[in-house]
């Protein structure tokens, strides 16, 4: 049922190619999936209006459908491959860009082409962008919309009520979840092979990295420090990236789980081997940026090595996460070798 669209909300110009059998139109308009939410459907004036708008649409479309329907099969029974894909979330952008046919991408989120946030900003720039406003999404006439578990419920419910499939992607916080995320999106898009190829490449590179880490005798500590004084503790994505790069997350030993604020004094009192800074909008002055440049941190610069990773590389977990782990390993490895050379 979730692939049935609300035809009333669509323009008629696609009628020639896409209008199914008139029975399906009836089904779409009147036999909409009955859920608990639908019972108070007409309670909200705006939604009641949409209901009648779709009736009106049906009145226009049904004759059209009867005229054009002859050759087209009713699609309601078997889910078709989504033709028009919209992503309203940065994490979904990266997956849709890698997995979907370029011709099927109707729009990506407005963050997708920001190189400070998106690893695939260059590729994303070629596609239209959309905000998360339902009105704007509707104009794109999508078959499927990808958001995240943090997409406001109201957006997700409204889209579903209008007959558009909405997929809320979970946030991957470890390597297994990265793998699952890529595979599940590939499955939804009907491109399992492509997904498996991406995951296989990621797994191979993680395995190689693991070998190089195993050759190293020491496991230095590292601590991430974001503007505003935040760090990523145990159970965060960066924590698992650090582990894969052969580093111990110092935030974990300070008792921090997930992303949480770390008082500067705690950092100063037990400095890690590597301080991982995640520069982001460094030139825009904020208090958070001033904190990262605090005098106290500068005075301890002799005790910790600073490494910078673009923030974009740590936000979303997917197959590209292996790039971050490799980069982190190489940066730390170069410093450790240099230090070893000095000591000898």
């Amino acid at each position: 049922m979730q692939t049935i669209r609300n035809y009333g909300a669509h323009s008629a110009d696609r009628a020639g190619t896409d209008i199914p059998h008139h029975a399906c139109v009836w089904q779409a308009v009147f036999n909409r999936p009955v859920t608990g939410r639908d019972r108070d459907f007409s309670a909200t004036p705006m939604l009641a209006f949409r209901k009648y708008a779709s009736l009106l649409g049906a009145a226009v479309l049904i004759p059209l459908a009867i005229t054009f329907a002859g050759a087209t099969e009713c699609r309601a029974a078997e889910p078709p491959e989504p033709r028009r894909i919209v992503s309203i979330n940065l994490a979904a952008d990266e997956l849709v860009l890698q997995l979907a046919e370029a011709g099927n991408i109707a729009a990506l989120s407005h963050l997708a082409s920001d190189p400070r946030l998106s690893r695939l900003a260059d590729r994303a720039a070629a596609f239209p962008s959309t905000s998360t406003a339902v009105e704007e999404i509707l104009m794109l006439e999508p078959d499927i919309v990808f958001g995240s578990q943090y997409t406001p419920r109201i957006t997700a419910e409204l889209l579903e009520r209008l007959g558009i499939e909405f997929v809320a992607l979970p946030v991957a916080t470890n390597i297994d979840e990265c793998r699952e995320l890529v595979l599940s999106v590939a499955e939804i898009l009907g491109v399992q092979k492509r997904g498996e190829a991406l995951v296989a490449d990621m797994d191979r590179r993680f395995a190689e990295l693991q070998q190089r880490v195993a050759e190293r005798s020491i496991r230095p500590t590292a601590l991430s420090y974001l503007q505003g004084g935040y760090t990523q503790g145990a159970e965060s994505l960066l924590h698992h990236i650090m582990e894969a790069a052969g580093l111990r997350n110092h935030a974990e030993s300070l008792g921090i789980r997930g992303e949480a604020s770390l008082p500067l004094e705690k950092l100063i009192l037990s400095p890690p081997d590597f301080l991982i800074l995640l520069p982001f909008h460094d030139d825009d002055p904020t208090l958070g940026n001033m904190l990262v440049r605090h005098r106290a941190l500068r005075q301890l610069s002799g005790r910790m090595y600073r490494i910078e990773i673009p923030l974009a590389w740590t936000i979303n977990g997917n197959n590209l996460t292996v790039d971050t782990a490799e980069y982190l390993f190489e940066q730390t490895d170069a410093i450790l070798r240099e230090r070893e050379g000095e000591e000898q």
Binding site: P263, L264, F280, D284, L287, G288, H294
Partner: peptide
């Protein structure tokens, strides 16, 4: 309006105040 999305989190500081992690500057 700040281009830096972290800036909105700093509203709390400006409305309620704090001397935590300040420096000699």
């Amino acid at each position: 309006f700040s281009p830096n999305p972290f800036a909105t989190q700093e509203i709390v500081f400006w409305l309620l105040g704090s001397v935590a992690d300040r420096s000699w500057e």
